[in-house]
């Protein structure tokens, strides 16, 4: 207790310290007195940026979907009309929308099936070092270059590429030829078929399904599984009645990503697949060479509306808790 004497030996007048001088002291006091002002100052730059740059652009885009293009002059007629939306319903355009939504749904479904074992293993069995390894094992492909990933598949799916070579070595080339001969899914080679597009979509968006799924599976308490086994359930029954319902929010969250990303992508079907268009490609084509910004804008409204419906449904399943 040697320091006791030096502590607490102050006069009564110093209970309140004097104001600090200078602009710093005044600024600090002002921000203390008006916490709202500080909040406003902090929020202003990001909100202004996002509201002006981003929301402004989005609104401008939406606005243009109500314009139309003059078919003879190719100029944009800036008067309000629903004509452009009407064009969306043309068979050729409807075809594009149906194709894209079907692909998004298939990719989402397949991603869920492939992601589940990885997520389940990482959440329930992987420990310590393995857990970190699994986490990185999903994060690295997620963050690796999108174009490089697509490029890698162009190498794999090429006619002279590794997959054909592998199937030949296994004497299964007839299987590939048979598949490619099928209508819709087939084509002259895998990299020029809808199957190829599907595989690449699945590959590129898979990590976006694994992460939220794993997050929701982490929250399934192990003792719940034991309780189920204790009550005489087989592993299959436990899975169906306990694990799956609890994983559903994560599944829904992951599917938001896979669905939305597939809906909006225009690069993958451009590089790998048939010449049939997806929504993204249609948007790109209409705004670019055709110069039909109104139709391109109307096309972008489709994924927004589809995603809106999807989010509304997912929210009812509690998907946002797992994001």
């Amino acid at each position: 207790m040697s320091a006791v004497g030096t502590i607490g030996a102050a006069g009564p007048s110093d209970a309140i310290l004097p104001k600090r001088g200078g602009w710093r002291g005044r600024l600090a006091d002002l921000l203390w007195r008006r916490p709202g002002l500080l909040l406003l100052l902090m929020l202003m730059p990001p909100v202004l940026w996002l509201a002006v740059v981003y929301l402004g652009s989005l609104l401008a885009l939406l606005l243009q979907s109500f314009f139309s293009i003059d078919e003879f002059s190719g100029l944009i007629d800036r008067s309000f009309t629903l004509k452009t939306y009407g064009e969306l319903l043309r068979p050729a355009n409807l075809d594009i929308i149906v194709r894209t939504v079907t692909m998004a749904a298939l990719v989402t479904l397949a991603a869920a099936v492939v992601a589940f074992p990885i997520a389940y293993f990482a959440a329930r069995y992987a420990r310590g070092k393995w857990k970190a390894l699994f986490y990185l094992g999903v994060m690295l492909p997620l963050w690796s270059s999108y174009l490089v990933k697509v490029y890698a598949w162009k190498l794999i799916l090429a006619k002279e590429g590794i997959l054909t070579w592998l199937l030949q070595k296994l004497h299964l080339a007839w299987l590939l030829d048979g598949w490619l001969a099928l209508p819709v899914v087939g084509g002259s080679s895998l990299s020029l078929s809808a199957t190829g597009t599907f595989v690449v979509f699945l590959y590129v968006w898979l990590p976006f399904m694994i992460l939220p799924l794993q997050a929701s599976l982490e929250r399934v308490p192990a003792n719940l599984l034991e309780a189920s086994a204790d009550l005489g359930a087989t592993p299959q029954q436990t899975f169906r009645n306990v694990v799956f319902p609890l994983a559903l929010p994560g599944l829904a969250a992951g599917s938001i990503f896979t669905f939305s990303l597939t809906l909006g992508d225009y690069i993958i079907p451009q590089i790998i697949g048939t010449s049939r268009l997806f929504i993204g490609q249609a948007v790109y084509a209409h705004q670019g060479t055709a110069g039909n910004i109104p139709l391109a804008a109307a096309f972008t409204v489709v994924p927004i509306v589809v995603m809106g419906l999807y989010l509304w449904g997912a929210r009812r399943m509690g998907a946002f808790d797992a994001l």
Binding site: D14, A15, I16, L17, K19, R20, W32, R33
Partner: peptide, 8 residues
Amino acid sequence: AIPPYRRN
């Protein structure tokens, strides 16, 4: 009205 950093 004194902020905490000016109270001893």
